[in-house]
Design a protein around this nucleic acid. Structure first.
Lengths: 188, 188
DNA sequence: GTCTATATGACGATAGAC
DNA sequence: GTCTATCGTCATATAGAC
């Protein structure tokens, strides 16, 4: 029961994919035009400027990730939650050489408008907050280890995951993501 | 006793600065032309293609960082070595909003030639190897904590530092770099 | 080595017909 | 909504005079 995607939806989807691969300054309306099968002027009808497009892209991406996080069973032990999160994080690495959209936009942030910075910051905070709760649970259970405040440890963990997808793609291996996961896992 | 820089040296220096700020696809020969005060055709005389320029930029940047690492006193305790490294890592954050050149190029890697990937990989490996030795020393001394193999922990630490400069710039604060440092520091 | 001049194409964006 | 046509600008890059 696949629903046909509108042109607008296709544009946003491909924009997300392309930016996760090449960054904001590495794709063009022409790229989207060829992928979707409409002229660039039609894309400008939906998104007058590239800034409008990237803002909608990051909002949709954020919603998708938040939805995936809410779908994680709260009854799971924390180490399994972290394993799921790590898999989610590296999901697009193997097939498309893509990294997290908001990690990529954080690299391009100095060439982007303030509204995008706000949206990317919100994504970071939401993920760090989710990870902080997982770490807190894990410490109580004894399935994870985290020094200091969970919020501080979660920021470090999130940064390590962002850095690791970058390195994973650079070296063509997913092993580096698992290194990170192991660092916060309690020794059994 | 300041030596006058040649045009070639100025071009490479400014290319490094600009890429650390906006990435490979976010600066142009025109930008360099205005900064150095020569025409773009003169820059093409030294670097026929942009790929030639970025390759020399990453090599020079790597040499500078390697030189700074060799200048670290081997007699220092490991936690102080890590503190120095963290400072070195975030040095360009405050004034210029710049992140590590090789972290930035890792984000842009899918738009860059293979030779650049090799050079960036070499930079990653060299830094991870240096950090692995520091962690090893720190564990022996009891000044740092690291689970598992030092090489694996060093990869995680390096990724966390790369991710943290990204986040530090995004949020306009250096606190996130210190979060990372604290994570590997032994509780006193 | 540095310049003027130019080739060639990509880019984001808009006007207006249908 | 989608198109054709186009504008103005910027990009990388080269040829050839000085």
């Amino acid at each position: 029961m696949e629903t046909k995607l509108t042109v607008r939806e296709q544009v946003v989807d491909h924009a997300i994919t392309l930016m996760m691969l090449r960054g904001y300054n590495g794709f063009s309306y022409r790229d989207l035009s060829e992928l979707v099968g409409v002229k660039t002027s039609s894309i400008h009808y939906y998104f007058p400027s590239k800034d409008d497009l990237v803002l909608e892209a990051v909002n949709q991406y954020s919603n998708e990730v938040m939805h995936a996080l809410k779908a994680v069973d709260p009854a799971l032990p924390a180490n399994e939650k972290l394993a799921m999160y790590t898999r989610l994080f590296g999901k697009t690495l193997g097939d498309g050489n893509q990294i997290c959209l908001c990690g990529m936009l954080a690299a391009d942030i100095e060439t982007l408008p303030e509204a995008v910075r706000q949206a990317v910051q919100a994504f970071f905070r939401a993920n760090e907050s989710w990870l902080a709760k997982v770490l807190e649970q894990g410490v109580k259970e004894g399935t994870l280890v985290a020094k200091g405040k969970p919020e501080s440890a979660a920021r470090t963990l999130f940064a390590a995951l962002q850095g690791s997808v970058l390195a994973s793609r650079l070296f063509h291996t997913k092993a580096r993501l698992e290194d990170v996961q192991a660092t916060w896992k309690a020794v059994s």
